[in-house]
Simulated assay, not measured.
Amino acid sequence: MFTGSIVALVTPMDEKGAIDRVSLRKLIDYHVASGTKAIVSVGTTGETSTLTHEEHGDMVMWTLELSDGRVPVIAGTGANSTAEAVSLTRRFNDSGVVGCLSVTPYYNRPSQEGLYQHFKAIAESSNLPQILYNVPTRTGCDMLPPTVARLAEINNIIGLKEATGNLSRVSQIQDLLNTDFLLLSGDDASALDFMQLGGQGVISVTANIAAKEMAHLCALAAEGNYTDARRLNQRLMPLHKTLFFEPSPIPVKWACKVLELIKTDTLRLPMMPLTETGICVVKQALIDAGLL
């Protein structure tokens, strides 16, 4: 459940900005049918930064309810306050989620020791499996391989979503860790290379709109069939790139709407709708990928 194609699910909203349960059900059904291995609910792509605490919990619980055991659900529980991250994590104890994804604290730029103590406190607050999430372009904070190795010694810290796009990190981390620790790419454009170097999968933005293709890509990589995997990845590469043409999840929510996976591409301020230029770029990428 923690390998292969794991979708970083968008949070569908109606015209007024409320969470859209009808579209959420449609998205979950789509991922079940497409072979997505697990859903991350309320991660970065799920607009965690603009949801209230109550909405955050509701979105995770509704994802659990609507998935009805058909696909594992991982809860996004990261925060820049350790106490808040601990509270979010505890909220999902005994809820049915299979684990938590916790991003490095953003904005306050902690030291490596601060990162260690932060994640140690979170892990010790729960029996749920914990996946670390390193995305310095978003957080201004980079968790280095020696810190990951220290954290990996804590029993319920089981893996890392590494979203730096720096492929040398794979071998650096592997050299310090045992083979049971999961390494997941958080960067679609380099995910195939990441898996070829030893990663076990990807927590993907592209999978929101190309779920079957991403599931197949990861399956090919797991089989060691990199010839066919690279052919498929080359077709998806325009999507991998243009879904970040403007800040995510702006492009991917627009694409979800165009593909009729959700009703609207509503976002909350300070996020703005996809620009006319962005629409042209993303639409062409969808055409090139054979999705439109």
Score class of each variant (00 low, 15 high):
residue 216 H to Y: 15
residue 157 I to Q: 13
residue 206 T to F: 01
residue 192 L to N: 10
residue 190 S to M: 09
residue 190 S to R: 03
residue 200 Q to W: 08
residue 193 D to E: 14
residue 224 G to W: 12
residue 148 V to M: 02
residue 176 L to I: 02
residue 165 G to V: 03
residue 162 E to S: 06
residue 202 V to P: 00
residue 229 A to N: 09
residue 195 M to F: 05
residue 190 S to T: 15
residue 205 V to T: 11
residue 225 N to P: 11
residue 222 A to P: 02
residue 172 Q to V: 00
residue 210 A to I: 01
residue 167 L to W: 00
residue 211 A to G: 14
residue 157 I to A: 13
residue 203 I to M: 08
residue 195 M to I: 08
residue 182 L to T: 14
residue 176 L to H: 06
residue 183 L to G: 03
residue 163 A to D: 08
residue 203 I to P: 02
residue 216 H to W: 14
residue 223 E to K: 15
residue 228 D to S: 13
residue 156 N to F: 02
residue 148 V to T: 09
residue 206 T to E: 06
residue 182 L to E: 09
residue 184 L to E: 10
residue 214 M to W: 03
residue 214 M to A: 01
residue 184 L to C: 11
residue 176 L to F: 06
residue 218 C to K: 02
residue 227 T to Y: 11
residue 227 T to A: 13
residue 204 S to F: 01
residue 222 A to H: 14
residue 153 E to D: 15
residue 187 D to Q: 12
residue 180 D to K: 14
residue 227 T to V: 15
residue 162 E to R: 03
residue 176 L to Q: 11
residue 159 G to M: 06
residue 187 D to L: 08
residue 211 A to D: 12
residue 213 E to F: 06
residue 149 A to E: 12
residue 206 T to N: 03
residue 212 K to C: 03
residue 151 L to K: 05
residue 147 T to F: 04
residue 146 P to L: 12
residue 191 A to Y: 01
residue 227 T to P: 00
residue 175 D to V: 01
residue 152 A to R: 05
residue 195 M to V: 11
residue 219 A to W: 13
residue 167 L to K: 01
residue 195 M to Y: 03
residue 217 L to Y: 00
residue 156 N to G: 04
residue 174 Q to M: 06
residue 198 G to L: 11
residue 176 L to W: 07
residue 197 L to D: 01
residue 221 A to Y: 08
residue 188 D to E: 05
residue 227 T to M: 09
